[in-house]
Design a protein around this nucleic acid. Structure first.
Lengths: 211, 211
DNA sequence: GTCTATATCCCGATAGAC
DNA sequence: GTCTATCGGGATATAGAC
């Protein structure tokens, strides 16, 4: 870019950029943004403290990047999961499952994107807020769709949506991969609970079409 | 205590102690422990920065006091609420209701006691951890009791307990008193959702005894 | 792009007068 | 118990050599 003849950038540069973000995500998740120093991040990435400022203008910008890209990825996963759903319960279940899988597989990222937002600048907080709103809408729209068809029975879609999201995001706080449950078990249980919250139990037999 | 003749302590002393804790709770909740300075706390309480150290040995001790007393109070509220329950569903519903009311009425305290724990010393964290465990047990015992009698239908008591607590604690993050819902509405909705998670719907009629 | 060294600032906690 | 003043340490971010 700056005038060299070689046009294949050395891999170490992008690797360093990425390692900084990875290290920051882990530290922000475990100790919190303000308890994490730029030395923590840089040394975990195998670099000097000053090297961080070559790649990112400030510690807060690193946080912003983590939150924004993380939530955009989460939203994308949810949208993809909902494609091809056959009915509201199927759609809500798919989205819930994807939500749980993502939170179980990206616990550090999820914790940062959910619990460190108060450290963002007002401008960055606005952007992240919109990401969160889209995710919220994704759940609520599925919920309201089923309420329209009679597949669900929900007294308040907003509060129910909050509860669904609370249950799911908190998976990132209590789930440990090396423990009692697999990611699939957690996701299955979560999806079942979401459908219970939606009041989606068709009688008790299970799959029989409603007559 | 220190030798004075008067034995009625001036009210301002206890008031100052309390105001420091109140101010710290608010600031820890909104900005986080590490983003809060001792000057923030003291000035919000109307005192100089050094005055904090007359009443508490360190900022971390203030956090510890807030978390411990807060969680003990919450547990106490839950125990009292469960007294006089007629059956498992009634008991779980009462505990859930109390849990929701407390979180809606003490949003700052609840946020600190749930999301600032990583700033505690290892020793203090152990104590707070036990408080949290008792609260968790309170829910899980009611759940398992109903599973024993057949009143509830739950595939995994531990995961369901986590979800119940996640839904409830997160009320402190989204509930605003001056908004759409009253505390009672939130508590009613939460209790109903908890019973859904427990699978406590007896058929569909409601109260009829199971035959 | 990475490093060492440093500027600048602010924090938690203490000292000592009143 | 409260205050003003300050110590010692460590934070973010920058400067400048390589």
């Amino acid at each position: 870019m700056t005038g060299g003849l070689a046009d294949s950038p050395p891999d170490t540069e992008v690797a360093n950029r990425d390692r900084l973000v990875t290290a920051a995500t882990e530290s922000f998740a475990s100790k919190g943004f303000h308890a994490t120093t730029t030395r923590d991040i840089s040394s975990a990435a195998g670099m000097s403290q000053a090297a961080l400022y070559v790649h990112y203008p400030s510690k807060e910008e690193v946080l912003y990047l983590i939150c924004r890209t993380g939530l955009e990825e989460l939203h994308s996963v949810m949208v993809v999961a909902s494609q091809g759903a056959t009915d509201p319960a199927d759609g809500l279940g798919r989205v819930a499952r994807a939500f749980a899988v993502w939170h179980a597989e990206h616990t550090a990222l999820a914790k940062v994107a959910n619990y460190e937002l108060s450290a963002l600048t007002p401008e960055h907080w606005q952007v992240v807020r919109e990401c969160r709103h889209r995710i919220e809408l994704c759940f609520r729209e599925h919920l309201q769709q089923g309420m329209g068809t009679g597949a669900f029975s929900v007294s308040d879609a907003h509060m129910t949506t909050f509860s669904i999201i609370s249950m799911g995001t908190d998976i990132a706080r209590w789930y440990r991969p090396d423990r009692t449950w697999t990611v699939d078990q957690v996701a299955d249980h979560y999806a079942a609970m979401v459908l219970r919250l939606a009041g989606a139990e068709h009688g008790r037999g299970g799959d029989e079409p409603q007559r």
